[in-house]
Design a protein around this nucleic acid. Structure first.
Lengths: 331, 331
DNA sequence: CTGTTAGCGCATTCAC
DNA sequence: GTGAATGCGCTAACAG
């Protein structure tokens, strides 16, 4: 069933059918109703490729994901995929997934053409990666969660403004009576949170010290090792804030292995509110980012760039503290 | 840069260019080299939609994933995606992801046309779902991990032959000296493993009893509850075999909460070898399925159906036991 | 082995 | 407000 058959069944021209189906203003309401009804009746569905051939668009979005090093980041990745896929699908776009992208294996041919690209940034993502993907503005691109240093005039950015949630977390710790709080970072170069930590801790009324700051990495093991170091200090922290829930999980294990009970002996706060965090023992108090919102913002800005030629934008999705049971007043 | 410009730059016809680029036999080797070199030089990449319009193919594969209920199944899902995407990409196919498919929201229009479909089966998948997706044989379909009862003449199937690994696991338990072994199933209706369990246990020399068999579900909580029941029995099992690692994880928690130490007081064997299983405490002995192989088999059979019109096939990827530290001789 | 040509299904001019 | 005609880039027949 193609547009010609549809038009013939209606005794009108293909041009009118096309206009009716594409919500063009130059068609009478009556004709449009007829066309739509008949299309439904006959089960007509337009050929994406023919449309693309003539219009240049193909309703395809590519998602580029870096290789993350461990299980839980994978889960986070899947949530992002979900959060993106749904709004895009509702707008008629399909998501092509490209996992584990390596710059070295990009056969310029063989690339499917797409209407836009979503790039999930990783620590190694650079500004020129972005510019290249955007082909200097020819192709709409939105970047999710870029490192601070990454910029591009050609792409939209959706980042996660973690600061409000982090502030909330530190204030909460201070309110519980903590002073001596450790920080375990994820090792992102130039991470805003890490950079701001001294200031943030100070304004929450906490003591910050370099000895209690470790840029660990992203895995549970990284978190465990870092926490092990901090908790073995003679002036050990009464609470630990970690840059990710995965690190927090590792920190919990470290505490347990040292015979310390969470939250009685040490409080732990994570960041990301990944699914598993509520099932840890004890359930992890954590800074929640709204991944669904991230996906929605990314999808909307991308569609805006594609359909309305919106200029690149910068948006943030915010964060807040979710209090569960991994924090208590210090002994 | 399109095929016409490329042809003009070479002073040959577009037909020859097309043939050279598509590895057709009717082209001289010299011409082919020239064409390929020039194409690279000029950065020519063919338009997928133009190609699809005339050839009917578009090098697109759709992956349909059901909504899984918990975090770890998500991780398993992502591994499958990885395992599929890589071989497909190498063959020039792109993967469209469709998450959380619900039968109720399939607008027949708006579906992107694809060359083939991969369906990850869930407990609720039925034979007619498959037939429908395959459009009675018009569209190549491969189903990964179907429930036993699902069949279709129109689709290929890749399932995970878990039996060898399960046998290995039970024999291992028997060799350690266990007799009284609990089984926690995932609740799949008509699951082969569950159905075969009495026989499998018997042939391993273990005692099977209905009281020690629970079809729990898929979540960690399900596993914990089921194990709690089994371990509270007065004649409690000295070992538990679970249908998934997630269930095993829950079972470990149950044991711990009862003051039982794994593996000293109770041995636990899981199934799936998901990433996290090696990081549990103790590291989980488990039956490993080869997800990468599953993805490869699925990709290959799908491409075979598409490109060589192979008939639907049935394949299995096998399994084997990975011994870590969650099992010991019974006290 | 290579060239010529005819569409694939659609959106879009330009007429009317 | 509608119809006729054109061409997007490519592959497949058919000729040579």
């Amino acid at each position: 069933m193609n547009i010609v058959e549809l038009a013939r069944a209606l005794n009108i021209s293909t041009a009118t059918v096309s206009r009716a189906l594409n919500n063009r203003p130059e068609v009478s309401a009556g004709t449009r109703r007829l066309v739509i009804a008949k299309a439904q009746e006959l089960g007509y569905s337009p050929s994406a490729s023919a449309r693309q051939l003539v219009s240049g668009r193909n309703q395809l979005i590519r998602l580029e994901c870096p290789r993350y090093p461990n299980a839980l980041s994978d889960q986070y990745l899947l949530e992002v995929i979900r959060a993106l896929e749904e709004p895009l699908r509702k707008r008629g776009y399909a998501l092509i997934i490209r996992l584990d992208v390596n710059a070295d294996e990009l056969p310029p041919a063989g690339q499917h053409s797409v209407d836009g690209i979503v790039i999930i940034a990783e620590p190694g993502t650079t500004s020129s990666d972005i510019d290249e993907a955007a082909k200097l503005g020819e192709l709409p691109v939105v970047v999710i969660g870029p490192p601070e240093s990454v910029e591009s005039r050609y792409a939209s950015f959706v980042d996660v403004d973690t600061l409000p949630g982090v502030e909330e977390a530190l204030n909460y710790l201070a309110a519980l009576g903590h002073r001596n709080v450790g920080y375990i970072g994820s090792g992102y170069l130039g991470s805003l949170v890490s950079a701001e930590m001294p200031k943030l801790m100070a304004s929450a009324g906490l003591d910050w010290s370099p000895a209690l700051t470790i840029e660990a990495g992203v895995s549970r093991d990284d978190g465990r090792e870092a926490a092990l170091k901090q908790l073995s200090l003679k002036n050990r922290p009464t609470a630990i804030f970690t840059r990710t829930d995965v690190l927090a999980w590792g920190a919990m294990e470290a505490a347990n292995s040292l015979g310390l009970e969470v939250p009685v002996d040490v409080s732990i706060i994570g960041h990301d509110n990944i699914k598993i965090s509520s099932t840890l023992n004890p359930p992890l108090t954590t800074v929640a980012i709204n991944i669904t919102e991230v996906g929605r913002l990314a999808a909307e800005s991308l569609i805006g760039m594609i359909e309305d030629h919106n200029p690149p934008s910068k948006q943030s999705s915010s964060s807040h503290l979710i209090i569960r049971r991994s924090c208590a007043a210090p002994k």
